[in-house]
Design a protein around this nucleic acid. Structure first.
Lengths: 249, 249
DNA sequence: ACGGCCGATTTGGTATGACCAATTCAAAAC
DNA sequence: GTTTTGAATTGGTCATACCAAATCGGCCGT
């Protein structure tokens, strides 16, 4: 049942993961009470201590409140960002809507980040941005390089801004969604290299003139465009079914 | 009834809060080891079980990793969004830079949210948006109403989009930052009512014509403007305290 | 019959103490 | 000086017990 992956997860990790997934699957209605700690201890063949640690994790995830009288389930909309990871892990194929929502948010944040970064960047930092854009333009046909380049660019923007709020959010999105989605079998995107080059050209131009609006809107359009392509790629019949162990049918 | 709210925090809540604050204050360097669970149990006059529960919370906050061999402190930039709340609680006066960063992010997210919402809204939803904007215009001079109106608007946008990622982030920002900052003594803002009305007029116009770009950029400008006013109000005297402010050139 | 009061049961909160497994780290061996 | 090794330390787990708060059902007065 398990992949070769040696699960070094501790017992309480397992417990909290199982309960978490049960909750995320909707096996308990919001507000409903979970079984008592003692009952859970019996079910998982462990002691109350371990159960309590596991429940503590659920509480921090924002999907359960644990008070004298019982542990109660919280509606997912009130949870923490960290539920997104487990949520996509539950599904065989990524939910196109969720991916779309992710890109909308990413586009907004990185575009804003770019706008303020271009305004505040030192000439040295600006040069580094231009350098990355140049690299991107030189490798439009290499998806791997494109990926890395955009990541570098986003990182540089965030660095220049030194915006902790932004950074924490992007961190969360990265660990919860981006990394997981990238680990999935890649989808085939129809990339229009001319359009891509056009985008990069506008970007470079915006950088040299420090036209932050231009940079921001260009990035926004770029993310919209990526999102469109991804939506197109995800909505047809999902053919690429990779054997990865668990494949419910 | 909601006055002296007796802090019925449990013991482990206290423990995790104390340790959390110590970490956030920088009393431990990133990577450094915390005292052992047994030592902490002695220090806090409690059992290891309680200590472990408290540490579990720190781990979920993303400010500590807990592995066989020791509990280690994690740099705050790698933490979860949920550290922001405790972070502002630590300071007497809100850090203007942090508030600025918050508004930058908020502006980006709500602006994006507005853009997509205007595109997707049903006529009924669109009417509700217009209604809120109208209310805002009718009460430009009432700060309380303005506050509520903009909140309603943001909520409505998010509702229309039904974007879980966005909602979770906004939830986090609200509980971690917005609510806490609003609980602080209000700062006096120099509001230009004419400009405000102008903004609302553009908004209303954008809504009637479903011009999503216009709505988005208007909201963006609005947040920028709020942020400017807040920054002015928070830092009237630019003192020369260096600290860890971003002083890029 | 209805509604409020009260107590027994259930549930979480905390404390002990013990044992195991992994990590550390310094002493010992090369 | 480098490697090996083993004892001490540290987290991981388990069992048990008692306390306090919440819950729920039945009793009582109206």
């Amino acid at each position: 049942m398990n992949a070769p992956e040696p699960p070094i997860r501790s017992k309480v990790e397992d417990i909290s993961a199982i309960l978490r997934d049960e909750i995320l699957r909707g096996q308990y209605r919001p507000g409903e009470r979970l079984p008592s700690e003692r009952d859970l201890a019996v079910r998982f063949e462990t002691s109350r201590g371990g159960i309590r640690e596991g429940l503590k994790k659920l509480e921090q995830l924002g999907i359960a409140t644990i008070t004298p009288g019982g542990v109660r389930v919280v509606p997912i909309e009130d949870a923490s960002l960290s539920v997104l990871g487990p949520l996509v892990d539950l599904q065989e194929n990524p939910d196109p809507a969720l991916v779309g929502h992710l890109f909308e948010v990413l586009g907004a944040l990185i575009s804003m980040s770019a706008r303020t970064a271009v305004q505040r960047a030192s000439t040295d930092e600006l040069e580094r941005m231009q350098s990355i854009v140049q690299t991107l333009a030189d490798n439009v046909q290499d998806p791997e390089q494109q990926h890395q380049g955009w990541r570098d660019l986003a990182t540089l923007f965030a660095q220049v801004n030194n915006n902790l709020v932004l950074r924490l959010i992007l961190n969360g999105l990265k660990t919860q969604l981006i990394n997981r989605l990238e680990a999935r079998p890649k989808v085939e995107l129809n990339i229009d290299y001319d359009q891509e080059l056009e985008t990069l050209k506008k970007l470079a131009q915006g950088l040299t003139t420090r036209d932050s609006r231009c940079v921001a809107s260009t990035i926004n359009e770029h993310f919209d465009s990526i999102n469109d392509r991804i939506q197109n790629a995800l909505s047809p019949t999902p053919m690429t079914n990779s054997a990865e162990g668990l494949t419910h049918e």
